[in-house]
Design a protein around this nucleic acid. Sequence first.
DNA 1: CAAGAACTCAATCAAAGCCG
DNA 2: CGGCTTTGATTGAGTTCTTG
Length: 330
Amino acid sequence: MKIEVAESLVRSWLRHCEGCQVVELNWKPSPEWSLVISKELEATFTDMQARFPQAIKKTASLGQFLRQAEIDVLGMRIAPNGKVEMVFAVDSAFHSKGLSYGNDDGTRCRVQNKLLRTALLLDAYFHGIEAQILFVSPKINPGRASLLATALMETKDFFVERSQASFFLCGPDEFRDRILMPVLKLKDSIADTSELFLRSWQLVALFISEEKTNEAPAASMIQKSKEVLKQNYNEKRNALISAYYMSKYEHENLHLGNQSETFKQMAETYRINYRTLQNYRDYFDPHTGSHRRGWHQVDIPPQFKEIHNEFMLYEEPKLREIVLQSLRKG
DNA sequence: CAAGAACTCAATCAAAGCCG
DNA sequence: CGGCTTTGATTGAGTTCTTG
């Protein structure tokens, strides 16, 4: 069996991102299934032949047309009540030099043929169920993209009154945003080794994360996260200093209102919970000569100890100035 | 003495560490 | 890996104290 990596990706996508409980690759109808061809379906097929003579050969009968069909990835999303609420039919083409089946016309006809055939197939075997029909290709040359977009429009137009299906053409952008990126994000949460695409991505990711640290764009991201960390660190440090001040000297000299109001302002500035800040103060209380008992029953945590050691010799006005300045800077 | 402010400690949650 | 325990950080709730 030929292994198509794009199909594996789509399978993972349908399972995890689109909520399909059942997904099959290379789905085809069995010749053993009894297929009752309705008049409407027959009529649709005849109209289709007339409307898209290039894409569909006149010679084929409907039965033959359907039997030849194959859907690369077929997914079903089943509702809790057991009803199939959505069928996904995806055809994928991964051509590293850009989607191509011969010349422009050939490519357009092939894609259109796929879309039309799939729509008929779904109508025949999953009649009345809402469907999404997708043709996905990670690389489509710009010149052909507009051609295919037109073909897609024609197909949509043709089916607008006849079927519950919606059609999508996923070129490079949609492929990346709708399918690839969401699946890549799953890297750490899915452990199923039978999903080839995800598995290989997990393997590759081991090494690109290592390499990233040397690359410029990644470096700027790391720089950013470092800045965020530094900012958080400063906020926490300022919060601790303020808490130390509050424990040792109370709030009056700050002139920011009563104790609650003072805490409130500080907490807002340092982006922590009011209670948390109050608790910081209580950790200091047993060591600052405060009238409160504070957290006398536990040891002072190291980071509190450090602040204590650093500022224990500061006079009130000097420490007050430090606190007020940190509040002004925000 | 009632309402609001302050205090104390328990409960909760998440990250880190451990181990079969 | 995955389940379990430990540890640390944060928040919530109930009680006590002040103040007008």
